[in-house]
Design a protein around this nucleic acid. Structure first.
Lengths: 193, 193
DNA sequence: GAGTTTTATTCAACACGGTTGAATAGTGCT
DNA sequence: AGCACTATTCAACCGTGTTGAATAAAACTC
């Protein structure tokens, strides 16, 4: 933008880092379409062409600036090991543990990214659901696993992706209290009303 | 676009309808950012400027082309009248009854629209949750209503907004079977595991 | 019905967005 | 030193949503 002599700069300043930092802040504040490449470049004190050069495209910068580890299979492995009685609590904890960390920052943005949503879908349906069914065993294991995925999807949706106040404000312990009964019933396939 | 003599056309062709029809189809096919105003105009056989004139903006056309009746308070009133035992089933039926009708068409698009998501949020948190709590009464009514909203949000999310196969493919009856136990447990606040 | 206002439409142009190609100045290897 | 490579700026391009003027039909008024 400003006359910063053409060509490679002195030293090896980590410009990519400065760009992603600025990108995170602006994407967060104004959303994906509301953030222009030129604005990011200006905030990072750099020319707009650089972000195409470094990240390929605006979409590329977006994807890379929120390195979505939302889908971390290792956390799942932890939850699916242990006794059946506390499975519900472990699942809930793994969700809050994973997503609370990333902050409402990336969560809200994730819903705008098509790839992220597909990844989440594939994970819930193709991975989590199958593993839970396998863990449960017994009759109706598939149906119960589907129900559990539905409940966990509800937690993810109402707490992170489109956070409603009464659920977003809960502490992780409260999440257990609120969602515990529903999730346990989903896993067992029965509820006393 | 093409030489269709300037000025008001003969008769009173319902151009707005042709535009919204074309818009629905294209938005559906390519998403909001992937659909250009000029493409919609071309598909409707009309100049691009017309859509700014009729709908104010591209966003306005988008909002109006999916007239979001997703949030219909009357369906809720029906569900909240009756005995406590079948409340869960009635709530589930009202969700499937309402959203299955609109087709996966508008549902998938809704998640891209900020206004729609806010409306849904406000409805779940400010309306549905309060009414359920009021209906339930007794201790912990608020917490149980919150849990119920979480479960219903899960159904909406995993079946309509970001539909995963195993839940999107269910019949309304199956939805009751799968989500029934979890929702009943949420409403009662207890589950036998 | 003639005259005026209002509405629906096209056209041309603007401002802005993301992206690209050329020019340039450093870094790193031999 | 020389050479390939990399990081950067600049100028330009093309596509986008939107706007203002021109125009023609409809709707209203007396």
């Amino acid at each position: 933008m400003l006359n910063k002599t053409r060509g490679r700069p002195r030293g090896n300043p980590d410009t990519k880092a400065r760009i992603t930092a600025a990108a995170r802040e602006l994407f967060l504040k104004h959303g994906y379409p509301g953030t222009t490449v030129r604005a990011i470049a200006a905030a990072a004190g750099v020319d707009a062409a650089l972000i195409s050069y470094h990240f390929g495209s605006k979409q590329g910068l977006f994807s890379q600036s929120l390195d979505l580890l939302c889908v971390d299979p290792t956390a799942l492995d932890q939850a699916l090991r242990g006794d059946r009685d506390h499975l519900a609590d472990r699942l809930l904890d793994s969700v809050t543990g994973l997503w609370d960390a990333t902050g409402p920052v990336q969560s809200r943005m994730a819903v705008q990214d098509d790839d992220t949503m597909r990844a989440l879908r594939d994970y819930l349906d193709g991975e989590l659901r199958l593993r839970i069914a396998e863990f449960l065993g017994g009759p109706d294991a598939t149906r119960r696993a589907t129900a559990a995925v539905g409940v966990l999807g509800g937690l993810i949706f109402t707490r992170y992706l489109n956070p409603i106040r009464s659920i977003g404000a809960l502490s992780p312990v409260d999440v257990r209290r609120v969602f515990g009964p529903a999730l346990r019933a989903a896993l067992s396939g029965r509820a006393r009303g």
